[in-house]
Design a binder for these strands. Sequence first.
DNA 1: TAAATAGTGTCTCTAAGACATTATGTG
DNA 2: CACATAATGTCTTAGAGACACTATTTA
Lengths: 259, 259
Amino acid sequence: MADADLKTTGNTQPSQLQAADYEYLATYQPSNYERPSVTVDIVILTVSDQDLKVLLVKRNVPPYQGLWAVPGGFVGMQESLDKAARRELLEETGVANVYLEQLYTFGEPGRDPRTRVITVAYFALVEASQVKTLRAGSDAGEVAWWSIYKLPELAFDHGQILDYTLQRLRGKLGYSNIAFQLLPEKFTLTELQRVYEVILGEKLDKRNFRKGLSIRELNRSSESSKTYMLEELPETRPGGNYGPTKLFRFIDRVERIIG
Amino acid sequence: MADADLKTTGNTQPSQLQAADYEYLATYQPSNYERPSVTVDIVILTVSDQDLKVLLVKRNVPPYQGLWAVPGGFVGMQESLDKAARRELLEETGVANVYLEQLYTFGEPGRDPRTRVITVAYFALVEASQVKTLRAGSDAGEVAWWSIYKLPELAFDHGQILDYTLQRLRGKLGYSNIAFQLLPEKFTLTELQRVYEVILGEKLDKRNFRKGLSIRELNRSSESSKTYMLEELPETRPGGNYGPTKLFRFIDRVERIIG
DNA sequence: TAAATAGTGTCTCTAAGACATTATGTG
DNA sequence: CACATAATGTCTTAGAGACACTATTTA
């Protein structure tokens, strides 16, 4: 299980099948009951231009032709859900090794007018500069980043999927380090604050925001027992119309390399 | 969407299909690609005997014959996921109108040795006294409540599903009123505290626990502006080996009647 | 020298956690 | 009268939020 949010402790798959199972399986034939189609849809988010953006594709085939949709595709018969999500993500954006989390499974009959389609929705957080190319799938025309606060008309129940994504993301901001998935390796505290602000949709107080961060400062006599979230770097970034700004690094980036 | 945790604000299904869509749909034939089976599994939890219990069924057919499993079943082609979950819940326990929440979707190839099965896991919180009869499905023998802390050997990846359920439940205890789903209409503060304790797996301090509750007390001069969580009732329950104890009621039980 | 942004500390209020005694009813 | 449980308040500490000025650079 590669999902970032799913940390199990004990109990995994039982060690072995039993003798009776092997006899049974040798003669098992899948029944011919009608089955739904299963897809994954990926809400790909990034922060750029001081806004929270989502990658959408414009449908060039019915249904909902001309409307925008979250990229997605069918789950292969030998492919895990996480793998399918990563494959779609790679196909659309060319990025791998980014934060990916299963969001929710949407399965109302009628959500796709063609046939029964159950979709397992994921969301991915990518750093804007990692995305090299945007490629449209076969049933899509344009691909573009849209502000999640100013969306076009969306196909299927994708509006609901985006609503829920934002809800989940806001919730996790408070008790996780998820924001770092949207930043490059080195960043300023102002950039970090911007990420929080565009996700929460509100301005934050600069001093209070910085108080909440636990920072290992440079030249601070090494009391290395404490566990810090951020590390001050010796480098600075030349300012634009003002002075140089300190750069920081997230200390524990393990969450980034998942799946 | 009937899920308790999914509150969407704006964006729903687009108002109407377009003319082109109707033309397309008139000629649409579902493809014959192989499809996975989709099931729902329901983790049914209750608190009794000062323990957190989960309803399990003993499999009397392969695979994993003789092991215990979370009840579940196939999703009907015209049935929403939530409906399928409620149907299974009703079949096993005879209860309806209880708290139900989608947990996670498990879809590793090989999690079911027969064929590809993707399962949408739900969890339900039921009050012990509501459950009248326990009925086993066709592929199950016994049905029983097990302590989630002392489980038998489990079939499929159901150990993982239970791990994740407990993780989610513990998380939600902190920021929601979910515990009330496990209690009858009227209860004592000690009973409420027991629910928290068996879910968290630790003893809590009685005075601190009660401080955290916002209670509308009897005979407290009506400052009705505030919004309370609990209401003190004029009734008391005769004590066992001790004095009578005050009864309380959860004020906003709307969450109970979902789906 | 005006405009833009970086960087920094204090005070107040609230929430969380540690902690012990008295009262009541039953056997 | 021994036992089991109900009910109740204070103190300390930590975190959240409100709030304003100085320094630096460029145009």
